[in-house]
Every structure is written in C-alpha cells, then in structure tokens.
Amino acid sequence: MNETELSSHEWWESYKETVNNDPEMDVRGHDKFSENFYIEIGDERVLVEMNGGEIAELVPNPTMNHQWSFGVEGDREAWEAFVQETPPAFNHEIIASHYRTAVRGEEGHLQLTGDNKKIFQHLRAFQRTLDLMRVAHNNGGN
C-alpha cells in the first residue's frame, strides 16, 4: 500500500505519471482522449486536463476560467473505497458506482456529472483513467 495519502500533492503527481505511462492509453483511439474532467473528493475538486490520452495539467479548485466536459463527485469514503487494491462491491468501477447513485438512489457512491454524450464517446479511456487512480494508489501495481 502506498504511504502517500489520497489527493495529496504527491499523490496527484504519482497519478499523473501512472496515467501518462499507461500502455492502454496509447491504443484503440484512447490517445484521442482530450476531454477535460474533474474529480471531486469530498469538497476538494481537481481538474484533470487531458491532451492526447495524457494528463497535461492538474488544476486544483478550477474556476470559470477553466473548461471541462464532465466530472465525478463523491465523498472521501467512497473514493477511499474506490482506490483500494480490491475495492468493495459497487464502489469498484465508475459505471457501477454511478448506477447505484443515479438509478437506485443510494448514498455513499460516486456520481457522474456533465455531458453524457462525451462520457460515452470516451468511455473506456475515461474509465481507464479513473481505474489508474487505484494503480497509482497501490504503488503502480509493483
């Protein structure tokens, strides 16, 4: 387990490196993923600016001067579950977690916001980018 706390500066830097070195982000058109999205952990929001399947910039507390297409929101406990090496059922993947929130009306899961069309146009690349939070959190799988 990584000693670095989720969402610390060091954590985000490690995450950026993990995404930008991931071989799946280079194939199947995932290198066309250039939609910005935000990750909101509790009340901390970080904008992930994507360019060609890589994270170009991480922007804490984005403002009206920034642009994004979609985002994911959840309380810290839901994200802590999401990044566990073996995450618990229903907080183990973004569509799963969003479904329990949006369709079943449950608390304690993640929720997608923003442009659904763009989410589905880049679904796998976006989903992979989020799954790489788990890889980064667990020392890159090493």
Binding site: P87, H92, I94, F120, L123
Partner: peptide
C-alpha cells in the same frame, strides 16, 4: 441510447459499459 449511436464507438462502449459488472478478483 448511447449504446446504439452513430457518434459513439459502440464496439468498445457496449463492452466496457459492462466492465464494472465483473468482480475485480
């Protein structure tokens, strides 16, 4: 609707919309 839409790569999306239906184990 996005699972059958001309502006979505439904080949990949129809698969990976189901990715989280499987256990990480």
């Amino acid at each position: 609707d996005w699972l059958d839409h001309p502006e979505v790569n439904t080949t990949e999306v129809n698969a990976y919309a189901c990715w989280g239906l499987m256990a990480p184990q």
